[in-house]
Nucleic acid binder design. Sequence first.
DNA 1: AATAAAACAGTAATCATTACTGATTTCAAA
DNA 2: TTTGAAATCAGTAATGATTACTGTTTTATT
Lengths: 123, 123
Amino acid sequence: MKNFSRQREAVLSVIRSTDTHPTADWIYEEARKIIPNISLGTVYRNLTELKNSGDIISIDVGDGKEHFDRDISPHLHLSCKNCGKITDVALLDDPFKNYYGKAGFIPENCRYVISGICEACKL
Amino acid sequence: MKNFSRQREAVLSVIRSTDTHPTADWIYEEARKIIPNISLGTVYRNLTELKNSGDIISIDVGDGKEHFDRDISPHLHLSCKNCGKITDVALLDDPFKNYYGKAGFIPENCRYVISGICEACKL
DNA sequence: AATAAAACAGTAATCATTACTGATTTCAAA
DNA sequence: TTTGAAATCAGTAATGATTACTGTTTTATT
């Protein structure tokens, strides 16, 4: 197990407690329930560290905020423009493997996001 | 042909003049070469309109700025963390069709981005 | 032309994120 | 254990991309 600071453990445990793709602000509020005086800057710094270490990823769904994700495997995100819900879709394997392989590209972070209208909202 | 204002035409023509996935600021600077006193707010408003009308799309590559793209077909973006270059990879067809079809999702905007190291930077 | 609606230029405000500062904690070597 | 350098922290200030506002100009319709 990695030797993380108490603050970094708190941030990571908050992200791992949910599948809702939280924002930095939400993570901050939750982390304060564990460490009441944790600072927002600390949350941001540790989010960056956790991204760099590959423990989490982040995605952009077009609302101007960064959303974090405990699931680091390549998967698809369906983001509803109406209700804001983000749905994960597991992939059997990365459908783009052949494409970036051919281009000689070394992937580090895959973000596959489709915005649209979810089944519950389309009526 | 749609009846666009002079300013919206200028913004669209700037985007269509390049395959470099420009930011709002770059588009603003270029648009000023066509309409010297065009305002940044006008550029932003028309970028939003052009996105809503489906004439352009935008992607996020993790640098905190929105990047615009004249190519509205589903395609893959390879974004180099080292040199910042964004490479388009054409797709024969959308590899996620089966996935969101099953979920009953109506797609409007597909953003497939992989960050990593491009061939030229890997040495 | 007269009118209303839409789009504009210019500027001010917003707000997510980053940078900074001085204090605290960690931890390896003595 | 002390010691001291490096890392991390809390708290706050600054940044900067984007959005909102205001009063003016353009456009479209009668």
